[in-house]
Design a protein around this nucleic acid. Structure first.
Lengths: 131, 131
DNA sequence: CCAATTAAGACTAAATAGGTCTACTATTTT
DNA sequence: AAAATAGTAGACCTATTTAGTCTTAATTGG
């Protein structure tokens, strides 16, 4: 499988939607829910996580909402996945700290992992929102 | 996360162990379990899956066991993961059949997926078993 | 025939993910 | 100041997936 989770997938959809409009515009959870067709509580949860991960900036209170934390061309797929799911690692062997059991396959996994992160870092939100 | 499953991980360990020895040698599940320290029922399950996926060849009956289906240098990480987990796809959008909801981000995911498969196809069991 | 060994798949339990809800805090408007 | 709007935090339950074990059948060598 080697899949991203549904929450991450929703995150990409929400971010692509926001990137396709005026970047100064504040989007609230209710409007985004209506526009995209994902239930409000779920949208709210995803936006919260993206904000905690630094991808979005939030503005509380009446007339509040969310905006992108920086230009869409500077937000990469790697950053988004890390914000929602934590560090990208194919196996425990391939995490930054290395593999505690020091297995023979460890160094090979780190090569694969580097390649995967490279691919994800080369893709920006701007690329994705334009199809 | 973006992780392979534990079963796949065990598969790599078992295959690397087999690749490090005479390729004609028949390995039975019991000996492999003892050598690697994974419980017999689990080892047995993994070997069965790898056989169904075409990575291993099996020999039934007394004095039976498993051997690699082809030289270690010709078995790639991509093949092994596919054998255990099915087609590699980061999201539903990135699978070979494409995304039924035809979302805007679809074509970008296919690029990422191609890059990931490329990385996994460039790594052979022979590479991994030598560290 | 008998012992060893793989094959198939059912089954339980544990872990993860998905989704919702409630209570709280902050900001704007009236 | 009060009310309305919107984000914040985190608990909570459910569904799905994954891990691991077990049982029964089929195959082969001696």
């Amino acid at each position: 499988m080697l899949r991203i989770t549904k929450i991450t997938d929703y995150g990409f959809i929400l971010l692509a939607h926001m990137a396709n409009q005026d970047q100064e515009l504040l989007h609230n959870a209710k409007d985004l829910s209506a526009a995209i067709g994902i239930p409000l509580p779920t949208v709210s949860k995803v936006l919260k996580i993206l904000t905690q991960g630094g991808i979005l900036k939030s503005h509380q209170g009446s007339k509040g909402g969310y905006t992108l934390g920086k230009p869409a061309a500077e937000i990469t797929a790697a950053e988004i996945i890390e914000a929602v799911e934590g560090p990208v690692a194919i196996t425990d062997c391939s995490s930054a700290e290395g593999c505690e059991r020091n297995c023979v396959v460890s160094s090979s996994w780190q090569q694969v992992n580097t390649a995967v992160i490279g691919a994800l870092s080369g893709l920006t939100l701007d690329d994705m929102s334009h199809g």
